[in-house]
């Protein structure tokens, strides 16, 4: 570990800033965490934000305007490692759901009223620049952001959680919501959230994106066998992770 602190930046493009807040919600260790790095830029909370060079830059939100793209490309150029923070940046999340709706269904609501607004297809950051690490989730777990920072300052490589949500859910002693007829996506969704939704009785919507090991084909079969129709399944699967399920159309036709 070198003496010099890692130069770090936290940036948001189009998003709700919830992921940035998730970092700040680490109240118990926040002041210590900030001291571990040279927090050069964090426009959400800081006034002066030099952005010439970073070791790590965390980007929240997705590309929904030409301005977003310009900012993102600059950040990529000025950083050694770019971290995709949260579901919008990583999978496209709810904004990217627009890919699955027809233009005439939404344009009259806003884009036809305000001519200056550009209608750019919302897309996750890795469709535009290279991403080195992902911290997925809507919002990402504050623990995971904390652990990530502790790893990089020790020169360790953070490892994404590729285990399904079910692993933590079973450990937490929950009953399986699929058994209760709820369309829970836990079995195909990457864990790391401590199964927070299921602990509270809500089924998993897949906000952390798919695991590399998912059995999507079987997941869809299960949902169909529980009585959910194709439209419902397609909607549910695409709400958070649609753009990361490229084989979806092929499987739905089966």
């Amino acid at each position: 570990m070198s003496e010099e602190k890692l130069k770090v930046g936290f940036y948001g493009i189009t998003g709700c800033a919830g992921c940035l807040l998730s970092f700040i919600f680490n109240e118990d260790e926040l002041l210590d965490l900030v001291k571990l790095v040279d927090l050069k830029a964090f426009p959400f909370v800081k006034e002066v934000n030099p952005s010439d060079s970073f070791d790590y830059v965390f980007v929240e939100g997705l590309v929904a305007s030409n301005e977003d793209l310009k900012v993102l490309k600059e950040l990529r150029e000025n950083s050694k490692f770019l971290v995709s923070l949260g579901a919008c940046a990583s999978t496209g999340c709810v904004p990217a759901y627009r890919h699955y709706t027809l233009k005439e269904n939404y344009e009259h609501l806003l884009y036809k009223k305000i001519k200056e607004l550009e209608d750019v297809n919302p897309t996750p950051v890795d469709m535009h620049v290279k991403v080195d690490y992902y911290i997925p989730g809507c919002p990402p777990s504050k623990e995971e952001i904390k652990t990530f920072i502790k790893k990089i300052v020790r020169g360790l490589q953070p490892k994404p959680n590729d285990n399904p949500v079910c692993v933590e859910c079973r450990r937490n002693g929950n009953e399986c919501l699929l058994e209760h007829g709820k369309p829970c996506l836990g079995p195909i969704t990457a864990g790391g959230c401590n199964s927070v939704c299921i602990n509270g009785g809500f089924e998993c919507w897949g906000c952390r994106g798919p695991t590399t090991d998912m059995n999507l084909d079987l997941m869809i079969k299960i949902l169909k066998s529980k009585g959910f129709d194709d439209k419902f399944i397609q909607d549910r699967l695409t709400t958070f992770a649609g753009l990361k399920l490229p084989m979806l159309e092929k499987i739905m036709k089966k």
Binding site: N163, P164, C166, V167, R170, R171, C176, G186, P187, I188, D213, N215, L218, M219
Partner: peptide, 13 residues
């Protein structure tokens, strides 16, 4: 194998 989600319910229970 075809019916397995690798969800780990079996090993946890």
């Amino acid at each position: 194998v075809d019916k397995c989600l690798s969800c780990t319910a079996c090993t946890a229970l």
